[in-house]
Amino acid sequence: MNPGDQQHQENVERGQVSTHEDERAYQVVFRAAAQPPRVDITPGFADRVMQRIAAREVAVGRREWAWLIAGMVLMVVAAIVSMALTGFRFNLTFLDPVKGLVAMGIAMAFLFHWIDRKWIRPTSV
């Protein structure tokens, strides 16, 4: 950095009035640089941003549903094919001794899911 120029810039930045040619030129530069560029923020800019966010969320929601349905259909198809190929017969009698435990497990899963949706997600987003 040129020390002379650096000094001139510092003087102008401090608002020092000077008749020095360089400092007068720097004053013009500083004033021009502080002017905003010619931009027109068209009215409703924030609205358009909000509309894009809303439209995107609808699209994302649709995509998520589509994936969910596709996954479920695939799972059912895979289960049917597997049962047909292996001759599997649906039999849950092995669960008989732990029926209560299984029921409690399912109930807990629902409870935790409900608590998560109701209390945890809204505060941690």
Binding site: N2, Q6, D22, Y26, V29, F30
Partner: peptide, 13 residues
């Protein structure tokens, strides 16, 4: 910042 101002100043002069 220094260089940009200096370049502009030279043009103004």
């Amino acid at each position: 910042l220094f260089r940009a101002r200096q370049l502009l100043k030279e043009k103004v002069i």
